[in-house]
Write a protein that binds this DNA or RNA. Structure first.
Lengths: 205, 205
DNA sequence: AGCCCCCTTTGACGACTGTCAAGAGATGTT
DNA sequence: AACATCTCTTGACAGTCGTCAAAGGGGGCT
């Protein structure tokens, strides 16, 4: 069957490529100006197309946003996964995780603040909630995988549950991001030392 | 001396009352719709004045917002202070603090999400940063006072520093707020149990 | 009384927004 | 070569935004 509307079939592959392309332009612009101050014209101006093309590939602004959010997830969720496979000691997991955490704080700062922006907007707009909650759960899993591997290699039990551990790490990271973007030069050292201190306290005797 | 501009002197008292009055209306509207989707006309419509009056008392929209933020601080910073004075045991501080935390999560949910909204917008707009960072520091102090009193009554040392402790508690609270606003009925129990579990782990032997 | 100053309302402006329609250009099929 | 289909540009629409100017009232003062 697969009864597609007449216009959909030949477009499928190319159209999905365009959607991705537009989503990447959109993510970059959103990371610069924030969700509220980014218009469809801004997004199109940062791409190589005109503003009308957005409505050709996305029915709605919210569809574009939610598509961007979902596309964003795929890029960042596996950030720490190679550390887990290749590390051989608890200490190695700890240090490499913290290094990566500090690196992405600086490197991907616009994308991180965009994520916090969207998550906060989900507190106001119900349309954003399903996607945001799903990504938040995925990020929680990501942190939990790190902590589980860390505890396994240290041969000690984890004291907290997954949501709490994620919430605490995320709180520390969000604070670091705010201060980093505010120009505080000590933020990186603070995040490094606090993350190095935090993880061991999540392990029991 | 006090060389005031001709228009300022007689206005002083009344004008500051109006500013407060408008700020309260603004805070309520901002808490409902969020920073980005709140216009000056919305704010005025929620007050008993017309939209023109806002520009009579505030030169700018950003001046209104920053004034609101500063006014908001005064209302919420002393939230837990009476607990500290009147509690006699560590356990009493712990339970009364957590009770208040859960109560304000439900009761003041719009104001909390507004705070998170503004703090996130400060990652994009530099004008908001001074006020946001100041309030964040004040909230950090508020949490630190609770933890200090808690540790003092328990006669045990605190394991973390003030910024980290605040960041972790705030992360847990922010997560609880998002899920509460998403309609998750188990959020309140989760926050209560996790907060009751978190504070003791911040104390050393 | 008449005047002046403070407060408020109203209406308007230019700019910007999401959305859509009409048409031009390109691409490939028959 | 001619046609049809997909893709993209352009221009316009209705609405909303921050901002401001003009004017209306309402007290108190001289």
């Amino acid at each position: 069957m697969t009864a597609a509307t007449p216009a959909e079939r030949p477009r499928d592959r190319k159209s999905s490529q365009r959607r991705i392309q537009l989503a990447e332009s959109a993510l970059q612009t959103l990371g610069e100006h924030g969700y509220a101050r980014t218009s469809l014209r801004d997004i199109a101006a940062n791409s190589e197309f005109s503003h009308g093309v957005v409505h050709y590939y996305f029915t709605d602004k919210t569809e574009l946003i939610t598509y961007c959010v979902r596309h964003y997830k795929a890029r960042c969720v596996t950030r720490y996964d190679d550390i887990l496979d290749s590390s051989q000691s608890a200490d190695e997991v700890l240090h490499r995780f913290v290094d990566k955490l500090c690196e992405t704080l600086v490197e991907d700062a616009p994308m991180h603040r965009l994520w916090y922006d969207l998550r906060t907007q989900a507190m106001f707009e119900a349309v954003l909630r399903p996607d945001v909650l799903m990504i938040d759960a995925t990020l929680e899993d990501m942190i939990w995988r790190v902590l589980s591997r860390y505890a396994e290699l240290a041969d000690r039990p984890l004291l907290t549950d997954s949501p709490t551990a994620y919430a605490m790490v995320d709180g520390v990271f969000e604070r670091a991001l705010l201060h980093h973007l505010s120009g505080d030069p000590e933020t990186l050292d603070w995040l490094r030392s606090r993350a190095l201190g935090l993880l061991p306290t999540l392990l029991g005797a």
